[in-house]
Design a protein around this nucleic acid. Sequence first.
DNA 1: CAGTATCCAGAATGATACTG
DNA 2: CAGTATCATTCTGGATACTG
Lengths: 126, 126
Amino acid sequence: MEKDFLKKYGEAAHCPVRNVIDRIGDKWSVLVLMVLEEGNVLRFNEIWGSIQTISQKMLAVTLKTLEADGLVKRTVYPQIPPKVEYQLTERGKSLLPHLHGLVGWANENMGEIKESRELFGNISRN
Amino acid sequence: MEKDFLKKYGEAAHCPVRNVIDRIGDKWSVLVLMVLEEGNVLRFNEIWGSIQTISQKMLAVTLKTLEADGLVKRTVYPQIPPKVEYQLTERGKSLLPHLHGLVGWANENMGEIKESRELFGNISRN
DNA sequence: CAGTATCCAGAATGATACTG
DNA sequence: CAGTATCATTCTGGATACTG
């Protein structure tokens, strides 16, 4: 029996799933978005202090990507020393409920998932 | 003004955000989950045919990870040639609404996001 | 303070060939 | 059919040093 009703996925540019995962699947974007949600308006070093293990480079790269996507707004105050503030845009805010859905799911299921993984035996992805 | 009310994120093992992103942030997991949702019960090659650009190796690895996490159930029929069927578990099904939330958001916003990115100028993440 | 520039290690993914 | 094994490549992120 053929299953021709299945959609074809994976063609990169036009794949809606790829679009999402490419955007939030990196190591830090979701974390930065949630920190900004909590802090409202934050300076570079405030975000850096809140995400303990991120490197300065990756914070800069992540913020720039989020800004380019219009999820975060960057405001520069021309002073010395410089002051730069970051905050979510409306578009960025509209994404957050979905992220909370995911994190909520993770919190509810991580315990059992870890047990499953133990039973299955640790596997490598290579 | 200090912002000590900010939570501290990023400590890997105990970070709920890391837990989610590590699980669905890879290149293929979400795609495979959605194909299985649509197809209900599918054989290895049916999934492979539905995700055009995935390699055989990565499909095998992805399915094994999802199985280890208890999101997908694998059933082997001891025949020659072999027949193996994959389907979502209840846990796997419980994740999907959240993924649909994200994909829906992406579909609604991708147009504007692409425009933003053009205006901003293409940036590299390195 | 808020970044950049460089360089590098390791992880993730892909290509290809082979097998029970 | 449903994988595994191996090798090659690409991509990501971290360390460190430097700057307007």
